[in-house]
């Protein structure tokens, strides 16, 4: 079933439009920096932006931090929300279940396929950033946020870890999207609801008066991966973030399976 999901995704035109959009992001960032006569000031733009002109490796990181707050959740919400509700709306869900595809298997395969596509988007941005950043500014040892310098190999490994963390950061949102997707027969409705929930989390996370609930928000841990570029590595928040994401996955993916296993498919 997972292979079928991936093959279907490969035949959808908007999969390739999204891929092109993700590839364009680091290209645009590096092009803008190349064309700009002024160096960006510290704090201007996404994290690590000021360092791209020092080391092309940072183009990859800037790309990842640029997609992380909006573009990636948008793609994750679109894919997850549409995963089951879209099949239901199109009428293909009843034919899959009558085939028969097990209901739990279908939910898990849909979840895995969305996560693979989200991970693929992060990989695309990371690799494109490395390619264009390296071509424009070269790849060298990486100065950390703490002042130490990492050899290129270690730096690239940290970039990979950062990409994995950002992908993991979408795991909870994809689980929420899939849960919503089991509740409705409208793919666009589920997508809007999923993205809306993430935006509300970001807004709540920006309100200091609601500090007490911040640790429970998915978006709260999104930049924890910057700790990977300190020396020594600051893993505490990364680990807390991973636990939070895993909790969201357990609750909402479990909820999606529980709802879908007993759902009457009338569409």
């Amino acid at each position: 079933m997972l292979a079928v999901e991936m093959a279907k995704a490969a035949h959808r035109w908007w999969t390739w439009v999204m891929a092109a959009a993700f590839i364009a992001i680091p290209v645009l960032i590096v092009t803008a920096l190349l064309l700009s006569t002024d160096r960006p000031e510290p704090g201007e733009g996404p994290p690590f932006l000021t360092l791209v002109q020092v080391n092309g490796v940072f183009a990859s990181l800037v790309g990842i931090t640029t997609i992380q707050p909006f573009f990636l959740p948008l793609a994750a919400g679109l894919l997850a929300g549409d995963a089951i509700a879209g099949e239901s709306q199109a009428g293909t869900l009843r034919y899959l279940l009558a085939r028969p595809v097990g209901r739990t298997r279908l939910v898990v395969a849909k979840y895995a396929s969305v996560m693979i596509l989200v991970g693929g988007a992060v990989v695309l941005v990371g690799l494109t950033g490395l390619a264009v950043g390296g071509a424009a500014y070269g790849l060298g040892p990486l100065p950390t946020l703490s002042g130490a310098t990492l050899p290129v190999g270690v730096a690239l490994a940290r970039v990979v870890l950062a990409g994995m963390y950002v992908t993991a950061g979408m795991a909870g949102l994809v689980a929420i999207g899939l849960f919503i997707s089991t509740l409705t027969d409208s793919g666009p409705g589920a997508t809007v609801a999923t993205v809306g929930i993430y935006i509300v989390m970001q807004i709540l996370g920006a309100l200091s008066a609601l500090r007490i609930i911040h640790p429970y928000l998915l978006s709260h841990y999104s930049l924890a991966f910057t700790g990977l570029f300190r020396s020594p590595v600051a893993l505490d928040e990364v680990m807390t973030g991973l636990v939070a994401y895993a909790s969201y996955v357990a609750v909402f993916l479990g909820g999606a399976v529980a709802v879908f296993r007993r759902k009457d498919v009338t569409s």
Partner: peptide, 30 residues
């Protein structure tokens, strides 16, 4: 259900795939 073939109300397919691919993917699915 493994030995059942069904047409339930109107037929539904993945419109962006060819007829052959639709059959192939439904055949592979379960």
């Amino acid at each position: 259900l493994s030995r059942v073939g069904a047409l339930v109300e109107e037929p539904a397919f993945w419109g962006y795939l060819s007829g052959r691919r639709n059959l192939e993917y439904f055949a592979r699915a379960g």
